[in-house]
């Protein structure tokens, strides 16, 4: 028996399978492409009237105005009649059905909760009122 025969044969080297690397890379790629597109901004949009000038001021007939008031204690009135939030949408719809030129004025007291004002604005939007004006009650 010679020394040569004792020498080990070359071992098989273990390999890490790399066939799926490109799949992983593509998945990560898709993630990074899609991530910035994600939009979680949900809300109610409005356009404010801007600086009041003589030209921008529009006169509206009193009969075309429907006023919703949010009082300091978060109570609601529609055309000076106390109303529950759940009834508001229906009342605006009825008013719009009678006169499609109606401008809904949402007048909120400075001490009222912002959440209540948004709840009313939500109802106004749900009632498909196109002309909406925001007003603050003079304390």
């Amino acid at each position: 028996m010679g020394v040569l025969s004792k020498r080990k044969k070359r071992r098989d080297v273990g390999e890490i399978p790399t066939a799926s690397t490109s799949d992983v890379a593509f998945l990560l790629l898709i993630f990074f492409i899609v991530m910035p597109m994600k939009s979680d901004e949900i809300g109610l949009s409005m356009v404010l009237p801007g600086k009041a000038t003589a030209e921008s001021t529009v006169r509206v007939r009193q009969s075309n105005v429907a006023t919703i008031r949010v009082l300091a204690n978060n109570a609601l009135t529609f055309e000076d009649t106390p109303v529950a939030l759940s009834r508001l949408q229906q009342m605006i719809r009825e008013r719009l059905a009678g006169n499609d030129q109606t401008v809904v004025v949402l007048e909120t007291h400075p001490d009222a909760d912002y959440g209540m004002m948004i709840a009313c604005l939500d109802e106004v939007k749900l009632a498909d009122a196109r002309k909406v004006s925001l007003k603050t009650t003079k304390p």
Partner: peptide, 16 residues
């Protein structure tokens, strides 16, 4: 905002 002429506003809300 009106003074600054930033007239487009968006009131962020949560889903109902």
């Amino acid at each position: 905002l009106k003074e600054a002429n930033a007239v487009k506003v968006f009131f962020n809300t949560d889903l109902n």
